[in-house]
Write a protein that binds this DNA or RNA. Structure first.
Length: 906
RNA sequence: GCCGCGGUGGCGAAAUGGUAUACGCGCAGGACUUAAAAUCCUGUGGUAAUUAAAUACCGUGAGAGUUCGAGUCUCUCCCGCGGCACCA
């Protein structure tokens, strides 16, 4: 019996506490009345095939530790959880295993929630949501309707990825190196009409706000690059012999004296203009048609495998460079993309590698107009001579001698003044394609009426009070590649009434992109119980003005205090979420006016940001990989936490994962060492169990040295947790435990606690240990805390009681949960050292370390000349130092107060 | 190609420009035990040398620089990982 009690058996209490916590709702903040709201958000998972793997657990644990830490610091922490289970990922998995997505969703949901409970996070379970729940996607559809009404949703024909083998449209991220992610066949481009959200309208605001965000830098850089703002100029060139002008976008107009050709892409309107010209020879017409047709059909993959070899057709026409009258031959080539700039470029082969390759291929003259750092002024004949960097202008008349940046400005001024060009700002960001010809998503809530279309407008949104457009059950749900989604097959779904004229109309049968589902979920979490379908049944009148969130609760909890997620999805998801939020904001759906003072988290954002951003702080955690690769079932390297939890307990796995390395770095998962973490937690377990039966209760007296270490540990662990430096926080707790259990120390008094001979350990030492460890190992610290509390009726300090008033949680039994207990504070008086350690260096090499009791220094300031003098004297008295100084001359003494003395000798 | 992040013992990793390798794993030796497991103790960068200790030199991917002093700052490379990519 004695033996069993001393062994750490997680099975004995982990699920017990999970159950009690949930019953007592200790992680369920009072959303309406919380005093210090802290919205601790983690990216919700899509319930993947394999279930929750240790990569997910790593991320969630890191977020949870942050939440637990903040909760103990007195915040009302809201840590919700849900599933991003709608969309193409989940549908693909359903296809793979031959199950209906709806059926599979239920299975995944159950499995995921079971696993998520087992890892012991402090989730607010009552606020969970699933994106495929009609109560949720009703509002996803509502967003679409509002976007349409605001003129931000529109239809456009454009090329999309199409897999001929799977007979389906693919999203960009499902196309890997031009091939289908699932069947590896080459992806084609197909022209299809799609729904788009006009995110480009917000490009500038999305870009401008980035610098004000407190985000992991690489994510900010990623977003900036994705938006890809560039300033340039559109130059119009007259085509000789016809009434047509070609407009070319360029960021480098400074090199325009070196322009020797013009290339239009296959999509450029000039191509169809040419083909319509009666005087164009039939043979050339055929040549052009064939080239353009082939280019449009050529897949990305083929283009990549074809390398950068340039192809093209000479049109027989010339464009005139107004600057010097140069007649530039006009070509059609597929290296010019239709959706970049104006879809036409002016070729400057001396200063652009692609232009150079093209010029070489077609034997076009090359003119040098810039001389770079190497001073090479010779004609450019080899690719390595192509000068794309900084330099000075030559052969460019009024630009000669200027630096390229000055020349760019001067040329733009010149072109604008002459009316030959117009300054423009271009973005790489394109409008967001929303529609998917799939089944498992929120049906796009739009209706098309052909009768009304004849009068001008054919598309109408489904009236808001008729949402959701329910996703019908469908046996034949797999994508067929007909260009239409599976919903098109259901007549009862398609046929509907026109909201405008009441006549016969048809529904849109595409569904929404899954990124739309996830672009607003954080707004719904605190308000999951607000305006449900059930509510509407009870009170249909109010519906029109209803929002997917409760205004008061939203004012209290949003913007999100701290968002944590993986860096891999961050560009798209974070950009879309910011965009949607900005729309809501601009439509006046938020009211944060009463919220000027309290910003939620500990870090205060610059006021300038206002409430235009949903995530003031974002932290990108690292990725856990296995065997050097991202975990995936096809690789067979998925590590499921279940078996480890069964064997060692969730506490051990949590702490082990956090100890692997810095949280923002991730790492390779290997299970060597997990036993070591179990060993450590077992030591803590035994230490606390032993202290339950002290040899002498009078022994609970302070041990000065241990007290000092304890306060130091509180300080560093708190600082580490504040910065999410979990690995070093754990290391410091380990050091603290090592100090407590260190048996080598001589015994100063005969009294001691339990097995820890030689030291007087106070109950406060033990309690502090448990509190510091609680965010990492929530179950065992709770178990021990309760055991300890029932043994020792330790009075709460005044401070603690004060803090408890803020807690809006329920209490456990007779003792509060350790997780609601205030985080320990350190007392600076224990951190004052009574001696100082000085490193003595000779020529920068450490030769001696001396310790000087502060009382020997007469109480002077560490940087005073007297102290320096005594340190020098003491140092010079050291035998080792003497040896190194012997026969040498001291040229200089570097004195770093309180730290170091360095003798520079020769 | 461009952007970003890394490179430190056998391994995961620590280190406000100031004692490099904390903490842990692994390994080796020891204690306890009839034995094993568990636990505890000791050692553990390299080279040289020694009965032992003290010690000296070398050492953070390579090379240069700044500095009294560089894992840390600057420059030039090499390697690994992630993202973007014919973006004009």
């Amino acid at each position: 019996m004695q033996v069993d009690e001393k062994k750490l058996n997680p099975q004995d209490f982990e699920s017990k506490w999970q159950k009690i916590w949930e019953e007592r709702r200790i992680y369920q903040p009072d959303l309406s009345n919380a005093k210090k709201p802290y919205y601790n958000l983690m990216m919700f998972p899509y319930p993947s095939a394999e279930g929750l793997h240790v990569g997910n657990m790593y991320a969630f644990t890191g977020v949870d530790i942050h939440g637990r830490f903040k909760r103990m610091q007195g915040y009302d922490v809201f840590e919700p959880i849900g599933l991003d289970g709608f969309g193409i990922h989940s549908e693909n998995y359903a296809i793979k295993i031959g199950k209906h997505p709806k059926e599979q969703a239920k299975i995944s949901e159950k499995n995921f929630y079971r696993q998520l409970k087992a890892i012991g996070n402090g989730f607010a379970w009552e606020n969970r949501l699933e994106t495929y729940d009609p109560d949720y996607y009703r509002w996803t559809q509502w967003i679409f309707v509002r976007m349409f009404k605001a003129g931000l949703a529109y239809r456009k024909k454009s090329p999309v990825n199409f897999c001929p083998s799977c007979k389906t449209v693919l999203s960009d991220e499902q196309v890997i190196d031009g091939a289908c992610e699932r069947c590896k066949s080459v992806v084609e481009k197909r022209d299809m009409e799609q729904w788009y959200f006009r995110i480009t309208k917000y490009a500038d605001k999305l870009l401008k706000n980035i610098k004000k965000l407190e985000w992991t830098n690489k994510v900010k850089i990623g977003q900036r690059n994705w938006i890809g703002k560039k300033t340039g100029i559109n130059i119009r060139y007259q085509v000789s012999g016809v009434r047509y002008q070609i407009e070319c976008f360029t960021t480098r107009p400074d090199t325009n004296f070196g322009a020797t050709f013009v290339v239009v892409g296959p999509e450029n309107p000039f191509v169809s203009y040419l083909l319509s010209l009666p005087k164009l020879p039939e043979s050339l017409k055929q040549l052009i048609s064939a080239y353009v047709a082939k280019a449009k059909k050529t897949s990305e993959a083929d283009r990549i495998t074809a390398g950068h070899k340039k192809t093209g057709v000479f049109t027989g026409f010339y464009a005139v460079n107004q600057l010097n009258g140069y007649k530039m031959p006009i070509y059609i080539s597929d290296f010019v993309l239709g959706n970049v700039g104006t879809g036409a470029v002016v070729g400057v082969p001396g200063h652009d590698l692609r232009d150079f390759e093209f010029a070489k291929e077609f034997d076009i003259p090359i003119i040098r107009v810039v001389v770079g750092k190497d001073g090479d002024k010779s004609p450019i004949t080899r690719p390595e001579q192509v000068q794309e960097e900084e330099g000075t202008m030559i052969n460019s008349e009024f630009l000669n001698g200027l630096d390229i940046h000055l020349a760019t400005v001067k040329m733009m001024d010149h072109l604008a003044e002459k009316g030959w060009g117009k300054r423009v700002v271009e973005y790489k960001l394109r409008d967001w394609c929303i529609s998917r010809q799939r089944y498992w998503g929120a049906p796009i809530p739009m209706i098309f009426c052909s009768t009304c279309a004849e009068k001008g407008v054919g598309w109408f949104p489904v009236p808001e009070d008729q949402l959701p457009v329910q996703l019908p059950d469908l046996d034949d749900w797999k994508p067929e590649g007909t260009g239409k989604g599976p919903l098109a097959k259901i007549e009862s779904f398609v046929k509907t009434k026109c909201p405008q004229c009441g006549g016969k109309a048809v529904r849109e049968t595409d569904v929404c992109d899954t990124f739309l589902d996830s672009s607003w979920y954080f707004l719904r979490y605190p308000s999951v119980k607000t305006n449900t379908i059930q509510d509407r049944k009870a009170n249909p009148i109010l519906d029109r003005k209803q929002l997917p969130w409760d205004p008061q609760i939203t004012r209290k909890w949003l913007p999100v205090t701290q968002y944590i997620g993986g860096a891999e999805h961050t560009v798209l998801h974070l950009l879309y979420s910011r965009f949607i939020w900005m729309c809501f904001y601009d439509w006046g759906l938020f009211d944060f006016s009463a919220k000027s003072k309290h910003l939620g988290g500990p870090a205060t954002m610059p006021r300038a940001l206002g409430w235009e951003e949903p995530f003031r702080r974002f932290y990108a955690h690292g990725l856990i990989i296995a065997e050097g690769a991202k975990m995936s079932k096809s690789r067979g390297n998925v590590v499921i936490p279940d078996e480890y939890i069964r064997k060692y307990g969730a506490d051990t796995l949590r702490t082990y994962l956090m100890f692997l390395g810095p949280f923002d770095m991730g790492g390779d998962f290997k299970d060597t060492g997990i036993a070591g973490m179990y060993r450590f937690l077992s030591r803590v377990w035994r230490l606390v169990i032993d202290s339950l039966s002290p040899r002498s209760p009078k022994s609970l007296k302070e041990n000065d040295k241990l007290e000092k270490i304890m306060h130091h540990t509180i300080k560093v662990v708190t600082e580490d947790l504040e910065k999410l430096r979990y690995n070093t926080a754990i290391a410091h707790i380990m050091e603290y435990v090592n100090q407590i259990t260190d048996n080598r120390e001589p015994s100063f008094a005969p009294t001691c606690v339990g097995a820890t001979a030689g030291k007087q350990i106070t109950i406060n030492n033990i309690r502090t240990l448990l509190l510091l460890l609680a965010p990492f190992a929530p179950h065992m610290t709770e178990e021990l805390w309760q055991k300890l509390s029932s043994k020792y009726q330790v009075e709460s300090s005044k401070d603690e009681k004060l803090n408890n008033k803020h807690a809006t949680y329920y209490l456990l039994h007779t003792t509060e949960s350790i997780h609601l207990h205030p985080w320990p504070k350190y007392d600076p008086k224990y951190l004052v050292e009574d001696e100082v350690t000085i490193v003595v260096q000779i020529n920068g090499k450490t030769r001696e370390v001396i310790k000087i009791a502060l009382k020997h220094l007469g109480g002077s300031r560490m940087d005073s000349p007297e102290v320096e003098e005594s340190v020098v004297t003491i140092a010079k008295n050291s035998e080792k130092v003497k040896k190194h100084l012997e026969g040498k001359t001291v040229r200089k003494v570097i004195f770093v107060p309180g730290k170091l003395i360095n003798f520079v000798v020769i």
